[in-house]
């Protein structure tokens, strides 16, 4: 037997074995993602064009679900507006986090302790955060009413979470408290990747501090800021826990987000088809906003996808 002829089937066998191995190793993860990401996305899109409930057969109804949503459903518009306000407020939190990040990034003594404390609220269970904040806003036992009343700023206690004007800002403030540390960490990582010699060169050239910030720090932070904005957009989904516990969308629908409305439509009223149509809108909103954020941050912030 010559080596050449023996080698090629052996090599082929080895290659098939390698591919089989790769397949086996990848299969469990891919199965999970197929079952819970890809299949649901497709099914969801299909469901949104159907009339279906667990008890009756599916029927294609075209755009009827969407028509109902866009033309007849005031709650949908409330939920959409609130979601957009929710997302629109996240730049405030990002700006605050940037301020904190700049402070703790300097050679401040004890910066590590400050960082830990600011970040401490992020890994908490959101349901528990909701309960804590609900209590802080409480009319009698709450911290805010206590402070406001004992300093004489108000005479009557404010029913924060029961008021149409205050409920949404209050929920957003609770969300800020939880996510601020995460923004700070992302921005800190970004700040630390900016080469120090740029600042030194600018200082030698006599560039004033605010110009250094505007011309060096901000442009080089773009990818991190983009990331924060994406996190802010995604938080309008994940804040379900917070809203569910704090107000459950109330009073009326003053704090209804799209995600809480989807839950109510799907699992409260068993209108899976309509909830699917709502989900499609929410997902498209996410995609569109992410693309816009990417464009605004200079379009080069694709480091997330790359």
């Amino acid at each position: 037997m010559t080596t050449a002829s023996a080698r090629s089937p052996w090599y082929q066998r080895k290659q098939t074995r390698d591919i089989a191995l790769v397949g086996c190793f990848l299969l469990p993860s891919l199965a999970v993602f197929f079952l819970y990401r890809i299949l649901p996305l497709g099914w969801n899109a299909m469901l949104s064009f159907q009339s279906w409930s667990p008890l009756k057969a599916a029927k294609w109804i075209g755009l009827e679900n969407y028509e109902e949503m866009l033309l007849d459903d005031d709650v949908f518009w409330d939920a959409l507006t609130n979601t957009l306000i929710f997302i629109g407020c996240s730049p405030i939190a990002i700006a605050l986090a940037l301020g904190i990040a700049l402070l703790v990034n300097s050679d401040l003594k004890g910066a590590a302790i400050y960082r830990t404390i600011v970040f401490l609220s992020y890994p908490l269970m959101t349901v528990a955060v909701g309960i804590i904040w609900r209590w802080l806003y409480d009319v009698r036992g709450g911290f805010f009413n206590y402070v406001l009343r004992s300093t004489g700023a108000i005479d009557e206690p404010v029913k924060f979470l029961q008021s149409f004007d205050w409920a949404l800002p209050c929920v957003i403030a609770a969300e800020f408290w939880q996510v601020l540390g995460f923004y700070m960490i992302i921005l800190l990582t970004g700040l630390q990747s900016i080469p120090q010699h740029l600042y030194e060169a600018a200082r030698v050239d006599g560039v004033p501090a605010h110009a250094r910030f505007l011309r060096i720090t901000l442009p080089l932070l773009r990818p991190s800021i983009f990331l924060c904005i994406v996190v802010g957009i995604l938080n309008s989904f994940t804040s379900f826990d917070l809203v569910y516990v704090m107000t459950n969308g109330g009073p009326g629908h003053a704090t209804e987000l799209l995600i809480t409305y989807i839950y109510k439509a799907g699992f409260g009223q068993t209108r899976f088809d309509y909830a699917a149509a709502l989900t499609v809108v929410q997902f498209l909103l996410l995609v569109v906003l992410t693309v816009i954020a990417n464009k605004l941050s200079g379009g080069n912030a694709g480091s997330l996808e790359r």
Binding site: Y36, L41, N44, F240, I259, T279
Partner: peptide, 12 residues
């Protein structure tokens, strides 16, 4: 890029 929250109905 597909958040899990966007798939809850079919996932259920």
């Amino acid at each position: 890029l597909i958040p899990f929250q966007a798939t809850i109905i079919p996932a259920y």
